[in-house]
Design a protein around this nucleic acid. Sequence first.
DNA 1: TTGGGCAATGCAAGCGCTTACATTCCTGTG
DNA 2: CACAGGAATGTAAGCGCTTGCATTGCCCAA
Lengths: 336, 336
Amino acid sequence: MEKFQLPTLEDVARQAKVSTATVSRCLSRPETVRRSTRERVMQVVGELGYTPNFGAQAMAAKRTNTIGAVIPTMDNAIFAKGLQAFQEEISNRGASLLVASSSYRKDVEEKQIRSLIARGVDALLLIGDDRDNEVYDYLAKRRIPYVLAWNHRKGARHTFVGFDNFRAAYEMAERVVGYGHRDIAMIAGVTDSNDRARDRLSGVRQALSDHGIPGLAVTECAYSIDAAGDVFETIVSGDRRPTAIVCGNDVLAAGAIIRAKSMGVEVPRDISVTGFDDIELATVVEPGITTVHVPHGRMGRSAATALFTALENRRPRSRRLETRIVERQSLAAPRQ
Amino acid sequence: MEKFQLPTLEDVARQAKVSTATVSRCLSRPETVRRSTRERVMQVVGELGYTPNFGAQAMAAKRTNTIGAVIPTMDNAIFAKGLQAFQEEISNRGASLLVASSSYRKDVEEKQIRSLIARGVDALLLIGDDRDNEVYDYLAKRRIPYVLAWNHRKGARHTFVGFDNFRAAYEMAERVVGYGHRDIAMIAGVTDSNDRARDRLSGVRQALSDHGIPGLAVTECAYSIDAAGDVFETIVSGDRRPTAIVCGNDVLAAGAIIRAKSMGVEVPRDISVTGFDDIELATVVEPGITTVHVPHGRMGRSAATALFTALENRRPRSRRLETRIVERQSLAAPRQ
DNA sequence: TTGGGCAATGCAAGCGCTTACATTCCTGTG
DNA sequence: CACAGGAATGTAAGCGCTTGCATTGCCCAA
């Protein structure tokens, strides 16, 4: 490949007959440069098509204007919407987003975190709080601000921007009980390395126990329609069929509902099903899924805001977003 | 914030009693260093918890191991799946992914491309080929390799890794005609700045025209279930109701189907509907959507491969992936 | 033993930018 | 008209790494 040179700060400086310092200031703190000088410089910048060299800028300024995010997977509407909003906010503020995914695996997540940091991200968005302490220590040692999203825990050492999975699940379970259900099963997400799944599970457990309903049958299940369908089939074919199934999220609920249909089981007449997240899927299956609405967009934007607060060396505050139950048709009173 | 220093190459070098050059080589081309030396160095690297400084490395090596992607939106399963696969492949090869989204707007996309390049990405993934020539000139001038995905055009100057939207849409339209439909309408995506939407539209047009069916009524529509529902309602309420509606993608088709249900119009008995993309949504609505299956995962991985080929200074080849029609229940013969 | 030749290592010059500090230029005031 | 003092600009020292080239070390053949 033949040689070619991009213009440098020095080229601009020379042509505008100022020092490199002045050019640099024109670009980063224009108000410190006299108007006439600034205009001359910017003119040359335009003519030459000058763009700062990223590496040099990063090295000299010790900052990359890049924010990292490690999410379980992009291929799931739960994260897509929030991440999209997060990205827009980041981008509006002149920074960029470096994303990595962990496939819900703790070891992979840790590797990705280290890799993003090695790549010079100024701050990190992480999902939930279930990771080894060394990871947090590492972040602290490197002075990397971070925000934990998609969950919220009171009085914790971390900055959360999310919602209370436990409480939301508790309320949903209470709602199910309120409809008169006593035989309730749960299809939960895989709880290993997943505090959100775990909190939703405990929320349901707690609610039932508070209402004097013993022995919740729980099956953990990967977030896939088919897998959830299989679990549903097993549950329904068992000797004691529950009258309601609380699902860890909408994907699981959709899987249950779709399988029910193909088995000739009618939802909610024969069995009720509830979801969590309120993604598009919940509105699209028939019957519509009664689920917990989560303000994903607001969460993403808010997480970005918190991160920028941290980058300004101000302590960001945790923020708990409200969820609410959206009733559609998949939950009804049990048949007598 | 108190001062703190991360260990540098020099710290490692000093402690391992070698030069910085040797440490650098241990890290990047270990085979050029004698085993005993290398082990001693790596030992110190471990003890100190040394990580290369990204900015310095980028500046000195003129390469960031970072790949950029500008997609219309993350919040759409069409891109999510492909991007997830792309990211995994990138990550496996030791690079990172910088993503930005354009909201289907040409001007925003251009800004994002420039911003990613300013951020030092080594290569770019872009969707489709509909952009101003200056953008390609800019990429050429900066010597940034790029791959265009989600579409494929024969003999073009660009590297495509995608599928032939025109042909796939053509085949789908032919299939619809094959079922006996003559009154066909189309709900297309917004074609402005979107070559995929445009190609799908022309594919359908061409097929109908080749089969002697004149006058396709087309309505463009944003990719949203509700918007598509509204369009569907308008079409169906018109004085000449078509017997089939070909949709630009599955989201549009789902919107049509859902609205049909609420209007008491039965699909496919009263009207047939087809989709495009074969996202999860297509399997979840009732009736299931007859659609064009696109190998999103393979496309994402393949795009990554092509990009790495380009980065090794070898000319990457365009690649056309096969699509196929998946028949579900939303397409059937028209009633007599 | 000697020297050739390759492998291993060291030296040091950048890479392009930011910024603390020094210097120069203005402006308004006495 | 001189000068204080702030505003504008310049000077130059890094930032931490890679890599071309120079040097040293080592092994083996003669």
